[in-house]
Amino acid sequence: MHTVSLLVENRPGALARVSNLFARRGYNIESLAVGPTERPEVSRITLRVDCSRDALEQLEKQMHKLVNVLRVSTLEAGEAVERELALVKVNAPPSRRAELMALGEVFRARVADLGPDSIVFEIVGHPEEVSSFEELVRPHGVKELARTGRIGLGRASAGRVARTQHVLS
């Protein structure tokens, strides 16, 4: 699985042109996040795709040729900060509430909303942490789930891998 980060012009059709390059080659985009950047005319697309190295290289070159695409890079695990936000609505009858809240605390998941028989957790973290939390609350009954898709940036301390690994582990 590869994470690709693109800077694109903030225009209609830019996302469609990018996603079409994947679709026409039969690749499924596993995760996709689009949002503004520090420049209002530029958006960032972060996407995840499961394909071979060679296929990825071809896709990157094709994306680079798109008129709306300004920059293409792949985020290598360990050399990028990657985050995702999830909202999880879990079954929470009063008898289970305390247990779930304790679980949430371990993951630093915030209670975004509380109802008579369910809780909506909000969790931000590395996508794998988000997945772990999802697995742990699943036995309680997940009513609904929404994930933003991963976003990422190259590390501020690019090149000093050892130190950053230490800081983040």
Binding site: G13, A16, R17, R24, K65, L66, V67
Partner: peptide, 8 residues
């Protein structure tokens, strides 16, 4: 025409 143009 999206997949068959350089741009539109």
């Amino acid at each position: 025409t999206l997949p068959i143009v350089k741009h539109s």
